[in-house]
Structures are given as structure tokens and as C-alpha cells.
Amino acid sequence: MTGRQLITETQNTWCPGCGNFSIQFALKGVLETMEKEGKSLDEVVLVTGIGCHGKMSDYLNINTFSSLHGRAIPAATAIKLANPDLTVICCSGDGDSYAEGLDHLIFAAKRNIDITMIVHNNRVYGLTTGQYTPTSPLGFRGKSTPKGTIEYPFNPVELMLASGATYVARGYTKKMDQLKKLVLGGVGHKGFAFIDTLQICAIFFPATDYYTPRVYDLPETETGDFESACVKGREWDYNSDAKIALGVFYQETLPTLGERGASSPIAQPAREEAVRDFLASRT
């Protein structure tokens, strides 16, 4: 299907000013670019979790798999393993992939499965109306922590570097063109591409005034050194006041899960024969 309308007619219910719009339009741009470059959009699958980000499945007119809370990655992993010709993009939230489904995120990095992971990191649970997430700053007052959180956030960039992700980037919803570029880079990257995306939640975490003066762009040429990526990744710990780097922290090419675990299917009649052979071997 070419020249399709990429945005569905489903009524959009994100709040005015929501950072998800930027991610949606960045994705739309990515799809347009892919199509221009000759990729059939029939061969693209978007996998989403549960949370405000999950509505992306309803709003983009492409193949989608709207999974459970925290469970976008296992589905995305399987879809890529089942059909390596597909381009698999995963949208997930910080509650989704940093809390409920953290194990899957770490394993996706460890396995270097060739999918692109965009975490809509608004640092708050939006759809459940405002509780803290693993990346909320210390002392965050949410509905479940009215006296303020008593735990530090973790740093997803550092976590993904430690877990073996081969493309680690950070974007910001107020910089849509850069975000599009980061996602395109992820799609083009062979391996697990992780893009932590600082997303404005207009209602529960409107952090534009905090982020905008602090963000700066990483140079595009120095992405191969793991040690300096770790240093850059630790510069801002999602809690203390610091400059916030945007762009690609690290990129490396390594064998992917699909390449390592390739299997060669055989046709059903040959399998019947194989079953008979096996039974004979047990006689």
C-alpha cells in the first residue's frame, strides 16, 4: 500500500500540549522517509504498551500490536524473530518499560534484538492520573506519594549502556526534527536501538521550563567510545540539576539475536517424515 493516509480518523484524545503529538509527527515523518527510500510500509509493525503513549496504535495507519502494560518488548522481539523482513518499532512509556516491564527492556538490550524502542518518558503516570514513576525526581509529589517520593530515580541511559544496548540516544519532544532523526537512526541501526524521549506531560509534569534551558546536542561523530558514552550518560542523573545531553550517546554494530538464532523451517510433509524417523529411533 503506497501513498496511504498515515494518520487514522480515530479521534485523538491526548491533552492539548501533550508531548505525544511530537512523537506521533516524528514517527509520521520517519514512515514517510522510509517509504521514500523504498521501504513498503506493509512491512512495518508498531508495538505499543499501555498508557497514554499506547494510543499511538490507534492513531497511525500501519500494522500495530497493542500489547499489555509493560509487555511491548516481548511481542516486538517475537515479531522480529518470526519475520526478519519486518521493521519493528516499539513505543512504550516510563511506567510501562521502566517499571512494569523493566525485565524485558534489559533483556532486549542484552539480546541485541533488531528493534527500535522509543520510551515516552514523561516521568509520571498520566493515564492513571499522576503517580510517580521510576524516573520521577526524589521528592516528587504524586497521588500515591503525597508527602513526596523517598527514592531516587534511576538513569535509563546508564542502565541501557550497562545492559548491552547497541544504540543509546535521548530525545526531547520540544525538538521534533532531532527526534525524527534519532528514530530514523534507530530504525537504520542493526540491533537494539533505545531512545529515551523526554516527553512533556502538560497536566502532571509540565517540565518545559526545566528542560529547555538545560538541553544541548551531543556531537554526532563521537559515538563509538563506551567509556565516554557512560560519562556523558551520567552527566544528568534525572534528579540533580545538570546540563541535559540530547542525541546519540553510543552506537556499535554487533550480531543481533535473529542472526545468532536463525532456524530453518521445513515443510509439513518433510516434518511428518522427520516424526516417523524419530519414532523409529525410539523403537
Binding site: 500490536f65 516481548p74 511481542a75 524473530l81 525485565d103 538464532g261 516434518r271 524419530f278
Partner: peptide, 28 residues
Amino acid sequence: EDRFGLMVVHPENEIGVVIMALGFTYAG
């Protein structure tokens, strides 16, 4: 695995198992 042309996967936990299964079945 090779005799029957299968892909056998041992994921991180049973939640991963079942959701991966659904991804595979979605892909046919």
C-alpha cells in the same frame, strides 16, 4: 530443533514467554 525445523526460545520469564508467543502468532 533442526530435525523438525523449529525455533525454540527460552525467554526471561513466563510473562516473556506468553507475550512473545502472541507476537509470533500475530506474525503467523
